[in-house]
């Protein structure tokens, strides 16, 4: 098991190294996330009473679209020079390739989200200090669910012409439970509600993460075979 995980982290580390070196994904995801916040900042008056109602939606629009942008590039680097075949030839169970990609995508997306979060608080004049611990739990759970399914769909769409367009079309309907749970629980956290008010949404996120991660983990091998 340790041997398997070592190789899984090797794939994740390789992805992160390539992305940090090229910086293409960092710039595009970060820029997109900030741009969404800036545009909504112009649309809504900062400090207005209704901001607390719309802010959770704005935050998750920025996060989900930026993550989707990153996912669409996740397997592009494996397609160039047919590197995916190189991975498939290695003596690693093919589920390990999926897991490595999920870990790489998750770390990368979380980093973009953590950098975007202070900008969100500044743009909308919100104090997130007290809400930060429960908000982090929601961000981690929702991001993992999005990435677990998104990584599978990214592998599926990379070989298809117009895959960049097809990925969100496939992904977003599947992600409705994640997006609704994330927006609802974020809203309640920002309103200062206790965990008992949004625990049902958290349970839904946990259930989604477990079920869809396990299903994607099993399906991946069959999906990448020609």
């Amino acid at each position: 098991m340790g041997h398997y995980l070592k190789k899984v982290f090797l794939i994740a580390a390789k992805d992160l190294r390539i992305e940090f070196r090229s910086k293409e994904k960092i710039y595009s995801m970060m820029l997109f996330s900030l741009l969404v916040m800036v545009i909504f900042n112009f649309a809504f008056e900062p400090g207005a009473e209704y901001i607390k109602d719309v802010a959770p939606g704005i935050l998750w629009v920025a996060f989900i679209f930026a993550a989707s942008l990153g996912l669409s590039r996740s397997f592009v680097l494996e397609k160039e020079e047919d590197c995916m075949q190189g991975l498939m030839l290695s003596p690693l169970d093919r589920s390990g390739i999926y897991l490595g990609k999920v870990i790489g995508n998750f770390i990368f997306t979380m980093m973009i989200e953590l950098v975007s979060l202070p900008f969100f608080a500044i743009f909308f004049n919100l104090s997130l200090t007290a809400a930060l611990p429960p908000l982090m739990i929601v961000i981690v759970l929702a991001t993992f669910g999005f990435i677990a399914v998104g990584t599978l769909f990214s592998a599926l769409s990379v070989g298809i012409r117009g895959g960049d367009m097809i990925l969100p079309l496939l992904l977003f309907p599947m992600q409705v439970p994640v997006i609704i749970s994330a927006v609802k629980s974020t809203g309640m956290i920002m309103a200062g509600s206790g965990i008992e008010t949004y625990s049902q949404w958290l349970k839904l996120l946990i259930a989604f993460d477990i079920i869809f991660f396990m299903a994607s983990f099993v399906i991946f091998e069959y999906l990448i075979e020609e």
Binding site: K7, L10, R17, I18, L77, E81, Q85
Partner: peptide, 21 residues
């Protein structure tokens, strides 16, 4: 097709595949 990553050096590519094996 090379199965090699353009944004890694020759040595980094070989280290990656060597560790996989």
């Amino acid at each position: 097709k090379a199965f090699l990553y353009g944004n890694l050096s020759a040595k980094e590519n070989l280290l990656f595949f060597g560790r996989l094996y």
